[in-house]
Amino acid sequence: MSLASTFYNTLVKRNSVFVPAIFTGAFAFSIGFDLGITKLWDTWNKGKQWKDIRARYVEEQ
């Protein structure tokens, strides 16, 4: 079976599979995308954010 028809038969064919697949896909994508952007953001702004300088000021109990 080609990739496209495997994709169709496992995910798209039944609505009971298709709709949950969209929901979980959207959920997984948003988390993954957010993690990726945060990683990029933190690398770009290394040393400038509060979490980078916080350790200098907290007193551990």
Partner: peptide
Amino acid sequence: WSHGGLLDSFDHA
């Protein structure tokens, strides 16, 4: 400014 660019955060220090 350290926060001038499109992707620059504030310098919290």
